[in-house]
Structure formats: structure tokens, C-alpha cells
């Protein structure tokens, strides 16, 4: 689409004072993209690995873990990152569903729940990985 360069642009990211609502709006898009590629590819790979039989599945487990025992650190970082992305996207998604009803636009309410999506996503990620790495080991 061509734009008349003489016409002014509407104010964009650089001109606004940053607030948590801007951050979570951007995080919603970033984590959504991470899940759409990283999360989906990993899930589909896992399903295809199971369908391919025990030999290939054992290769998959080897890639995700170290010697089918403790987790290797690269896949661990990816898995923890995807877990956080999932919860962040989930909580900002719930926030969007609430905003769709017209509720929650008051400045303090909006700021509070924006911050809560991030507190919630970090807490849920820590809870899940504590269970997987500490309680179950």
C-alpha cells in the first residue's frame, strides 16, 4: 500500500510513556509467535516421534534429555521458555477476553491486571518446573 509521505503518521511506540499494558500487549504477540512455531513444532515432532515407533522415540527423548536421564540444558531452556510463553499468552489472552466485554479499562485496573499476567506466568512456570525437576526426581 502506498502512503503519501507528506501526511503525518499517527504517534507510534517511540512517543508513548511505557506502561505494563503496552508491554503485555507486545508480549501477547511475541509469545503467541513463539508458541505458534516453537511450541507447535515441538508438539507435532513429539506426536510424530511416538507414531514412528520406539527407536525414533528414543532418539527424540535423547534430544530432549541427556542419556534419557536428567535434562540437557539447551532443551531445558527451550522447554522452560515455551512454558513461560504459554502461561504469559494464556493470561494476556484471558485479559483480552475480559477487555472484549468492555471491562477493565480504568487506568489502575488495567495496570494491575497487566502486571498480574506477568506475575502469574512466572509463578506458574516456576510451579510446573519445580514439580517436574525437584519433586519428581
Amino acid at each position: 500500500m502506498s502512503r503519501n509521505a507528506a501526511r503525518p503518521l499517527s504517534p507510534h511506540l517511540t512517543i508513548w510513556k511505557w506502561g505494563p499494558h503496552m508491554l503485555v500487549s507486545i508480549l501477547h504477540r511475541v509469545t503467541g509467535s513463539a508458541l505458534a512455531f516453537g511450541g507447535v513444532l515441538l508438539l507435532v515432532w513429539w506426536l510424530a516421534a511416538i507414531a514412528s515407533g520406539p527407536a525414533y522415540y528414543s532418539f527424540f527423548l535423547d534430544m530432549m534429555t541427556k542419556d534419557q536421564g536428567g535434562l540437557n540444558w539447551i532443551p531445558l531452556i527451550i522447554l522452560v521458555g515455551l512454558t513461560w510463553s504459554f502461561f504469559q499468552h494464556l493470561f494476556t489472552g484471558l485479559r483480552h477476553l475480559l477487555l472484549d466485554t468492555g471491562a477493565g479499562y480504568e487506568l489502575k485496573t488495567n495496570k494491575f491486571w497487566s502486571l498480574m499476567t506477568m506475575v502469574g506466568s512466572v509463578a506458574a512456570t516456576i510451579a510446573i518446573w519445580s514439580e517436574l525437576l525437584l519433586v519428581r526426581q
Binding site: V40, L41, L43, V44, L47, A48, I50, A51, G53, P54
Partner: peptide
């Protein structure tokens, strides 16, 4: 492509019996 691979895999596991 992702959907086809995933659904085929699920069906194979669910309907194919134990390999």
C-alpha cells in the same frame, strides 16, 4: 502440513495397534 502430520500420527497411534 503441521495439522496433517499431527492428525496422521495421532490416528496411527490410536488405530494402528502396538508396533
Amino acid at each position: 502440513a503441521a495439522g496433517a502430520l499431527a492428525l496422521f500420527s495421532i490416528l496411527k497411534i490410536a488405530l494402528g495397534g502396538a508396533p
